[in-house]
Design a protein around this nucleic acid. Sequence first.
RNA 1: GGUCCCGUAGUGCAGUCUGGAGUGCACGCCGCCCUGUCAAGGCGGAGGUCGCGAGUUCAAAUCUCGUCGGGACCGCCA
Length: 577
Amino acid sequence: MMRTHLCGELRQLDIGSTASVTGWVNKRREHGEHLAFVDVRDYSGVIQCVVDNTVDVRSEYVVKITGTVTQRPEGTTNDALDTGQVEITDAEVEILSSAEPPPFPLDERANDVDEQVRLKYRYLDLRREQMQKNLRTRAKVNSAVRTSMESQGFIEVETPMLMPTTPEGAREFIVPSRRRPGSFFALPQSPQLFKQLLMVGGFDRYYQIARCLRDEDLRVDRQYEFMQLDLEMSFAEVDDVLGAVTESILSVTEAVTGTRPAEIPQITWHDAMNRFGTDKPDVRFEMELVELTDIFADTGFKAFGAAEAIKGLRAEGAAGDWGRNKLDGLTDFAKSHGAKGLVWIKVSDELTLESPVAKFFSDDEKAALIDRFEAKAGDLLLIVADDWLTTCEVLGEVRNKLGRPAVSNDRLEYLWVVDFPLFVGKDKSTGLPRPGHHPFCHPHPADVDKLETDPTSVRAWAYDLVLNGWELGSGSIRIHDPAMQRKVFSVLGIDDEEAQKRFGFFLTPFNYGAPPHGGFAYGIDRLVAILAGEENIREVIAFPKPQSGSDPMTGSPTEIDEAQLVELGLKVLPPLD
RNA sequence: GGUCCCGUAGUGCAGUCUGGAGUGCACGCCGCCCUGUCAAGGCGGAGGUCGCGAGUUCAAAUCUCGUCGGGACCGCCA
């Protein structure tokens, strides 16, 4: 037997017993010819061992230490350690592996180390308490997801990683076929198509903790490959899906935090945009957009006169923090997000409005502004005038910039955003509407008659789950009726022939009796990151890739042998300029 | 494809604006001392392609240009 105890579990109850522990040397403290303290660490914690100083063990040596669990002498206990009341004495040390000094400190200070270095030696980084904690939180989430889904009658089904390319949506990773040179598989952006076919196949309720791959640029919250809880259910309406996902996410949260959050509130997409300027509102702080359009209905101020929508934000007491330079910067920020400009107003002690454009406002308009904003002395007011969507979106960005709290697990504010529009914007080249979610998303039945006449006003049976301003996931009720699918395709400018060519394998099954169904998927990495209080999903992934997409530990992606290329029928072209 | 920021010892940094010998600091590492420490302490030591390449200059970590690597964001992510 290698060990009798884990390092972190020894307590006063164990005093007197002989214990063997194994692990890494966390720290050695020398005190003379025949006394040294060696802290041994495993995943459970640290235990102090008293050894003869002639024993040559150094940081990160792997050791087995056998000795007597002993009460520490009075005055030498350590409350910072769970095991701080005891120590292992009369210790016999067996070196299982020696070790070179680690290239960076394996304690909290590693948080300041260049991430490239941490990733190059990820196997050392993973020894750190924080990474151990994060990945164990992740395991807990995965386990709780399975428990919750199983208890709700969902069954786990794996879907292929090798599938045909589907040109819609995210750029795909492509895998060459050896047996058919010149032909390629694609790795799934999501199991979307397969899970719907499982519904046609009669499985009723499916789930999978699925790996998804997208060849798009990486971000703090985006990796090439990421994990989703993917689910789909037959004979389900919007509320059924929301209910199942809510049950899942709340019980997962409870499993990690010990507390079950309150039921998740819902907001419509339109209200979310109108009040928070984004489809993923962070409702941990207020600062809602204020409607001003009516105030300036007959204004003489040209910049406002022609605008479809005028809205503002009140930054309470912020006037003093914003000098001219910072306000210019904020204006540039607003412009970079599509605004034509940003009007700022400081509210003075006498409730007069100080602003470069104040002279263009009538007294009535000024009074109405103060009234509408409920403005107080020292407030900073920010106003954008543009088309409705731009106005909302710009102020949404400004709102986040001004008030959004840091990533934190102190407060978890889940939010359902429902009634997304079926189409968002227009394709630049064709002028046709573009699907907001995906082209298999069911239109809201009340709006179906507007599909051809006013497509952009059609709502979808589509919904997002938001946590603290992060989009955790999205889903929809799908189209199960081929006639409805044709109708939506036709709005998108896809005729039968084109549809057959692009989605044939997926559409044919719907001619054989498809149940009404809908589903959802939420990102495990993002959920774990927030629950762990990390603002970067790389901190909750064992072996992530940096933003460059190249792995400093393995060196991937790598070139391949000429022979491999030949076998696959591939030829590498020089890079494009 | 674009914008901004970073690159000096194993790690984290100062030095760069205003050019003058790698003068450095902390941790780590190596050696010695040390019997109750726990970020132990004391003494000593080793450790540098200042990312790389050009240019300007009597002289470049420092200024200029280019390039590589990394990060945050925009585009992109149905």
